[in-house]
């Protein structure tokens, strides 16, 4: 069980209606089913991951997030989760809006481009950063919308989205990073609610 998925499971109420965007091999949904009695659905576009989900008995829907989420009605889920996928979609802001249209709340996790290792590689060597939490070379990366914690925070506050919970962990997902998180944290977890009208 991946540590980050355990952290997310702790943020989800038992019996919640959950949609997991970019669910991969369905690990989170399987954990939620056994630990929380949550019967969720995963969205995935990768054929190999879908095959794994089917073998594991996870409800998986083949769908490309870049095609949007218009197929789902307003408020059809209690919680919409997206783990380390925001940076790989074509229109992150629109997707965030969609997540909070179809879900009452959402959980978004993403890697920090402002981590000191990234800053070092760019500043001292003039190279695109490659780190444990951002492992791809610039030419074959799925990550087309990388951001720093501060960038995301600005987007979220600008949109008036209430931050219900927020924390930052290190690359092992074990330690909470509280001191200058935008420099020392690797992965951020945001639990967001809807903007108040």
């Amino acid at each position: 069980m991946r540590r980050d998925l355990e952290i997310i499971a702790d943020l989800i109420n038992p019996g919640a209606r959950v949609l997991d965007l970019g669910c991969g091999d369905g690990d989170l949904l399987r954990h939620l089913a056994s630990a929380k009695g949550v019967n969720g659905y995963g969205i995935e576009k990768d054929a190999d991951e879908i095959a794994i989900c089917i073998r594991a008995g996870v409800n998986v829907i083949e769908h490309d997030l870049d095609d949007g989420l218009t197929r789902f009605p307003d408020s059809s889920f209690d919680m919409v989760v997206m783990t380390e996928t925001l940076q790989a979609v074509a229109a992150p802001e629109r997707l965030l809006d969609e997540m909070l249209r179809i879900g009452e709340e959402c959980i978004v996790t993403f890697p920090n481009f402002g981590h000191w290792r990234c800053r070092m590689q760019l500043a001292s060597r003039g190279r695109m950063p490659v780190a444990r939490h951002i492992p791809h070379s610039w030419y074959d990366t799925p990550n087309i919308h990388l951001c720093t914690f501060r960038d995301f925070e600005e987007l979220v506050t600008g949109k008036g989205l209430p931050i219900i919970e927020r924390f930052v962990v290190d690359a092992s997902y074990e330690k909470r990073v509280r001191w200058i998180p935008n420099l020392f944290g690797t992965i951020a977890f945001y639990r967001l609610g809807r903007a108040r009208a």
């Binding site: 019967n39 054929a47 879908i50 409800n59 998986v60 829907i61 083949e62």
Partner: peptide
């Protein structure tokens, strides 16, 4: 097929779908 899938999700049924 997507119409069936979306209705099943809205009905809270277990469904898996591939194209």
């Amino acid at each position: 097929s997507g119409e069936i899938v979306d209705a099943l999700i809205a009905a809270g049924r277990d469904v898996t779908n591939a194209t």
